[in-house]
Design a protein around this nucleic acid. Structure first.
Lengths: 202, 202
DNA sequence: CACTAATTGCAACGAACATTGCTTTAGAGA
DNA sequence: TCTCTAAAGCAATGTTCGTTGCAATTAGTG
């Protein structure tokens, strides 16, 4: 599962045909298996059988199970259906934003994918589209708040004290509920803002 | 790798004999392999060969690779050589404590074991001895500080805003250095203390 | 409608892993 | 020292995974 962010989600040469059907079947099969099996116990014959596809096809197209899982994981995380909250106050924005993220990553299959990403990577996990998009959203909220002359924590602080604890809890199997997210937001809002460069604020 | 905290580190029936030699050889082999191979690519024949031991012995004693990796991981994390800092002030204690932990978990093989734990678990990772001992240390520091009439953040806050970010960075492959740990401590010290029950403070 | 190229399915093969019955070794107690 | 027994080694076997050559199918193109 190496090379996560390097592979561009290129369009298949024959989008409407059998290739696409096979790909979808395989994706679905992976999704179903991820819901009930540990990632490192998933094999290509497994997904092939569940997808009603010949294992050879999977081997040829993806090479090994890591590449396949990686591709599906990226696909699962890379959808930008989420919009940046704009409630009028930074605390409101942050609260809503944290809730969305918290509910998102605490869904069962999401947790699996997260863990898969972690265990698969030798090096950096970040630089995945999902992460950078989150950072950009946060930066936007902060810029807007500061334009309103609000005092806000820095990007790094929010990442460290809201995102990190959320992900930590999810990855380590601890409970994550709305209250937890809210408490984190309350904590970070009560922190003294640290001076930091505006590099992350685009 | 399920059942982490359930297995007590029982004493082998023949501590001085061949069993112990085999166990040590296997443990060492796992350690070496963990340093250069992803956990889910490590097989029993691999460790057996490197340990100079018959694979059958490993199969019989540990059952499968997950149980073996789990046992070694616990052994690696379960050593209470760390003592609680006592600098006279809570901020000093916390700083030192964070540094020790930060340096500990950012060592290469430590990172591996952490990731192995994460990917191995379906349920909770916590309740491993290493975690609870950390919590107890923290609680002790807080009790001492409050006995000196210092105002401190709660146990949960420190866990969320110091431990969680540290582990998050390690697990996700981001850089962790002393400065990072220090910044986290600074942040949490500047937070408004939240009222919480004293359940964690023993 | 036919042609061409890509992709899938099929089948056979080799390699690695996992299991089991039996033998041998070595530590512990009498 | 001798005996006993738990654990390790050995060898044979079954299973699953991964690879490869070849035929069949399918989707674009003229």
């Amino acid at each position: 599962m190496a090379g996560m962010a390097t592979k561009t989600p290129e369009i298949r040469r024959r989008p409407g045909g059998r290739s696409a059907r096979v790909q979808n079947a395989v994706y679905d099969a992976v999704g179903e298996l991820m819901a009930r099996e540990r990632p490192d116990h998933i094999t290509i014959p497994m997904v092939a059988e569940r997808a009603g596809v010949n294992p050879t096809s999977v081997y040829r197209r993806w090479g090994d199970i890591d590449a396949l899982l990686e591709e599906v994981a990226v696909a699962a995380f890379t959808r930008d259906d989420d919009e940046v909250p704009d409630t009028g106050t930074f605390s409101g924005d942050l609260r809503e934003w944290a809730l969305v993220i918290s509910r998102d990553i605490s869904r069962a299959h999401r947790t699996r994918y997260l863990r898969a990403l972690v265990s698969a990577r030798d090096g950096q996990v970040e630089q995945c589209p999902c992460w950078t998009s989150r950072q950009e959203q946060l930066a936007e909220m902060i810029v807007r708040a500061r334009a309103r002359d609000e005092s806000t924590p820095g990007v790094e602080q929010v990442l460290n004290h809201v995102i990190a604890p959320l992900y930590h809890h999810v990855v380590f199997g601890l409970a994550v509920d709305d209250g937890f997210a809210q408490r984190l937001v309350g904590d970070v809002l009560s922190m003294a803002p640290r001076h930091e460069s505006a590099r992350a604020a685009k």
